[in-house]
Amino acid sequence: MNDIISTGAWVGIGVGLGALVFIVALVIGALVQIGRAVHLRETVRTNWVLAVILAPVFGAIAWFAVGNRVRLN
């Protein structure tokens, strides 16, 4: 019985660490792309950086979903 409980605990720790690595990679990827986005004004870039830092998951997903669009005039 103890083996099942400890195995379940290790699985939970593994899943948690995997999720943490995914979130950190998502945030770093978003911040790198924001830094390289030449089409953004400084104020817009600052707002995106703040969004990603203050709300990491939502901010990074929002950047990849709507923020990474280039306007063609």
Rank of each mutant, 00 (worst) to 15 (best):
1 M>T: 06
2 N>H: 08
2 N>A: 09
2 N>W: 04
2 N>F: 11
2 N>Y: 10
3 D>A: 09
3 D>S: 12
3 D>L: 12
4 I>Y: 09
4 I>D: 07
5 I>R: 11
6 S>L: 13
6 S>H: 03
6 S>T: 12
6 S>W: 08
7 T>P: 01
7 T>K: 12
7 T>C: 13
9 A>T: 08
9 A>Y: 02
9 A>W: 07
10 W>I: 09
11 V>H: 04
11 V>D: 03
12 G>N: 12
13 I>S: 08
13 I>N: 04
13 I>A: 09
14 G>R: 01
15 V>D: 01
15 V>Q: 01
15 V>W: 05
16 G>H: 06
17 L>G: 01
17 L>M: 12
18 G>V: 06
18 G>C: 02
18 G>Y: 11
18 G>E: 02
19 A>G: 07
20 L>R: 10
20 L>F: 05
21 V>Y: 15
21 V>N: 02
21 V>R: 12
22 F>R: 03
23 I>D: 04
23 I>Y: 01
24 V>A: 13
24 V>Q: 14
24 V>W: 15
24 V>T: 11
24 V>S: 12
25 A>Q: 07
25 A>V: 11
28 I>P: 00
29 G>I: 10
29 G>R: 05
29 G>W: 02
29 G>Y: 01
30 A>E: 00
30 A>M: 03
30 A>Y: 00
30 A>G: 03
30 A>I: 09
31 L>T: 05
32 V>D: 13
32 V>E: 09
33 Q>Y: 00
33 Q>W: 00
33 Q>V: 00
33 Q>G: 11
33 Q>I: 02
34 I>D: 00
35 G>R: 04
36 R>H: 10
37 A>P: 04
37 A>I: 11
37 A>Q: 04
37 A>M: 07
38 V>F: 12
38 V>Y: 13
38 V>E: 15
41 R>Y: 07
41 R>S: 15
43 T>H: 09
43 T>K: 14
43 T>Q: 11
45 R>F: 02
45 R>H: 05
45 R>W: 08
45 R>D: 05
46 T>M: 14
47 N>C: 14
47 N>G: 15
48 W>M: 10
48 W>E: 06
48 W>P: 01
48 W>Q: 03
48 W>Y: 14
48 W>L: 05
48 W>C: 03
51 A>W: 01
51 A>K: 15
51 A>T: 07
51 A>G: 04
52 V>I: 15
52 V>S: 04
52 V>E: 05
53 I>F: 12
53 I>G: 04
54 L>D: 05
54 L>W: 07
55 A>G: 13
55 A>T: 10
55 A>C: 12
56 P>R: 06
57 V>R: 06
57 V>G: 06
57 V>N: 04
58 F>L: 15
58 F>E: 02
58 F>Y: 11
58 F>T: 11
59 G>F: 01
59 G>H: 02
61 I>V: 15
61 I>D: 03
62 A>T: 09
62 A>W: 07
62 A>S: 14
62 A>C: 02
62 A>F: 06
63 W>R: 09
63 W>T: 05
63 W>G: 03
63 W>Y: 10
64 F>G: 12
65 A>Y: 10
65 A>M: 08
65 A>V: 06
66 V>A: 08
66 V>P: 02
67 G>M: 03
67 G>F: 00
67 G>C: 05
68 N>G: 09
68 N>E: 06
69 R>S: 06
69 R>P: 08
69 R>T: 13
70 V>I: 13
71 R>W: 10
71 R>Y: 10
72 L>F: 08
72 L>C: 02
73 N>A: 12
73 N>W: 05
73 N>V: 09
